[in-house]
Design a protein around this nucleic acid. Structure first.
Lengths: 301, 301
DNA sequence: TCCATGACATACAAATTTGCATACCCTATA
DNA sequence: TATAGGGTATGCAAATTTGTATGTCATGGA
C-alpha cells in the first residue's frame, strides 16, 4: 500500500465526520471534547488538503456541500472501523486499572449502584467508574458505555447478557393519602386513585395496562402528574399528591412512604438485565465490574 | 454515535497500520515521510491510550503481539476507507492547480513523456507532475499514482482505460555488429545472434517466444547479457555486444544504432494503454493530464 | 425593539508534537 | 575482528497545534 498520496490528517477526517453528524463545529467540539475553533480549523485544513469544499458556511451554521455528501460515507466507514478497533482494543486490554462506564436509569442507579459500587471501590480501587445516568437506551455498540443495566432483554447477538432478577414493584404513598382509600377488598373497589407517573424507560411505558390487568381502575384522570425527574416524583408523592411506583428495595427505604394495598401484591415485576459488548467482556477490567455487579445486585434479595 | 470512549488519535492508528505493514518504524517513517522517532512515539502513544502492547520491541526490530494481530485488521479497514476517501476526494476536486502523478516504465517515459510533458507544462503551468519511473506495475487502487501508462490492458472494472496505439518494436544494433550477419533472406538464416535483454515489464517477459514465432533462432546462448537499467542496455548495444530491443520512436533516435534486418518488419508490437482510476477521472486536473497524454502520445505516429 | 442564545471567525499565548542529532544494539560480511 | 548497515531510544530546539478570550452575525422570544 502506498501512502504517498494518502497523507491527509486522519484526525481531520474525524473532525469532518463528527461535524457532519453533529451538524455544527460547536456541537462536534462538545462531543469530541475540544474547542470549537479547533474543529473549524481541522475541517478547513482537510478541505485545503483535498482541494474541496466540504461545508458551506452559512450565517446560521453549516451545510454539507454536494462534495461533502459524496465523501461523508467514506469517513463514516472510517469511523465504523475506528469504533470496532477501539472496542476490540479495550477487550484486549488486560490492565485492571482504568475506567469502566455504566449506563443505568436514574431509578436503578439509586437502588443498586451505591452498594455495588462501594464494594467495587474497596475490591478494585484502581478501577474508575463512569456512571452515565440516563433514561435513554444508550448504544453499547457505538461505545456510549461499557456495561448497561437494562429493564428488558437485549436482542443483539454480540452482547453478553445476564438476567439479574425480577424486581417487585409496589405502589407507594403517604399514610395520609392512603387513608382516603380504606381497606378495599379488591383492586377494583378503589376509586379515584391518582398516580405520579414516571416513564422509567420507553420500554415500560405501557404501565397503565399492567395496572388494568391487576384489576385497578385507571383512566386518563388517573395520571394527572408526570415527571422525568426522580427526586421530584418522590417529593410529589410525599406531598400527598398521588401514588408513586417504585421497586421495593427503593420504596421501602423512603421513611415517609408506605406500600399501598400490600395485600394485592406487586403491581408489576420488572426484569433486570446486565449487558456488555462481547468483545469488551474479554477485558479483565470490564469483566471484574460486570461480575461484581452481577453478584451484589443479585443478592440484594 | 458517541465518541467519548473512542478518542484515540486516528493518526496514531495510521502509524500503527503502516508500521505493521512495513515491518519497522524506520520503514514506516520512510513511506509516511516522517521521522522514525515520530512513528515510534505515535505507536507508543496508541499503546498507552488503549492499554495494550501492539509490538514486541526485539533487538532486531519489531514483532506484532497477539493483540496487535487481532487489531491490525481493524486499522486496515480504516486505511481502506481512508484510501477510498482520498480517491473520491481527489476526484471531486475541481481545482486545476495541484499535482498529478504518472506511473510509467523507464522505456515509455523516455519515448513519450518529454514531448507530452513539455506541452502540458506550457498549457497548464499550474499542474505539477510527479513521474514515478518504475518497471513494476504500480497499484492505482491504493493510489500509488493517478495515471499509469501500461503495456497491457488492465482488467479491473473501476478503471478508465484508453488504448493509445500499438508500438512497433525493432531490433537495433551498431553497423559494425550487424556486419557479422550479411543480408539474410529469412530470419532463420541468422545464426549466433545475441540480445541484450531487458525485462521492460513482467508482462512482456516471454519475449523469447515472439522471436521464435518470427522465425529467429534463439536459445539460451542468445541472451548472454541482462540488465534492468535502460541506459546501460543502450551502452552495451553501442559497444557492439549484441542487439537491443526498442520501440521505433526510441531506437531510431539513437544515432549510433540502426534497425537490424528491417526487411523482416517489427519483431513485436506492444500495445500502449493509459489507465486512470474511475473516480480520479472526474477530477478536472487529472482529466486534463489524461487528455493531453492521450492526444500527444497517440499522434506521435 | 431589546436581549438571550448559539453559530462561526480571529488573535495570541501556551502546550504539544515534530524533526534532527546522536547513542546504542544486533547482524552480516570482509 | 573490524566495519557497514539495519534497527530502536532519547535529548533538545523549533514548528505546529491547541485553547482561551473575544468579536460578529443571525434567530427567537418577551
Amino acid at each position: 500500500m502506498s501512502w504517498k498520496k494518502n497523507l491527509f490528517d486522519w484526525n481531520n477526517a474525524r473532525a469532518f465526520l463528527v461535524t457532519a453528524e453533529e451538524g455544527s463545529f460547536s456541537a462536534a467540539a462538545r462531543t469530541l471534547g475540544m474547542a470549537q475553533p479547533t474543529l473549524g480549523r481541522q475541517v478547513a485544513a482537510l478541505e485545503a488538503e483535498l482541494g474541496v469544499t466540504l461545508f458551506e458556511r452559512l450565517p446560521h451554521g453549516l451545510e454539507l456541500t454536494q462534495t461533502g455528501l459524496e465523501l461523508v460515507d467514506h469517513v463514516r466507514s472510517m469511523g465504523k472501523a475506528a469504533s470496532d478497533f477501539s472496542i476490540t482494543a479495550s477487550g484486549q486490554s488486560q490492565q485492571i486499572d482504568g475506567s469502566v462506564s455504566i449506563s443505568v436509569s436514574e431509578l436503578d442507579a439509586m437502588v443498586y449502584l451505591p452498594k455495588a459500587l462501594s464494594i467495587l471501590r474497596r475490591q478494585e480501587p484502581g478501577i474508575d467508574v463512569d456512571i452515565l445516568v440516563t433514561n435513554n437506551v444508550s448504544d453499547l455498540k457505538s461505545r456510549e458505555a461499557d456495561i448497561a443495566i437494562r429493564n428488558f432483554r437485549p436482542t443483539q447477538t454480540d452482547f453478553i447478557v445476564r438476567k439479574l432478577k425480577d424486581v417487585d414493584v409496589y405502589l407507594y404513598g403517604t399514610q395520609e393519602y392512603l387513608d382516603n382509600f380504606p381497606t378495599p377488598k379488591k383492586p377494583s373497589d378503589i376509586k379515584g386513585l391518582e398516580f405520579i407517573r414516571f416513564s422509567r424507560s420507553d420500554h415500560v411505558d405501557p404501565f397503565q395496562d399492567f395496572l388494568s390487568e391487576k384489576g385497578y381502575v385507571v383512566n386518563k384522570k388517573s395520571f394527572p402528574l408526570y415527571t422525568d425527574n426522580q427526586l421530584l416524583q418522590i417529593e410529589l408523592v410525599k406531598q400527598h399528591l398521588g401514588l408513586g411506583v417504585f421497586p421495593v428495595e427503593y420504596g421501602d427505604s423512603i421513611t415517609e412512604l408506605i406500600r399501598a394495598f400490600p395485600a394485592f401484591g406487586p403491581v408489576i415485576q420488572i426484569p433486570l438485565w446486565l449487558v456488555c459488548h462481547r468483545e469488551l467482556h474479554t477485558s479483565l477490567r470490564v469483566r471484574k465490574v460486570f461480575d461484581i455487579l452481577v453478584k451484589h445486585i443479585t443478592q440484594t434479595d
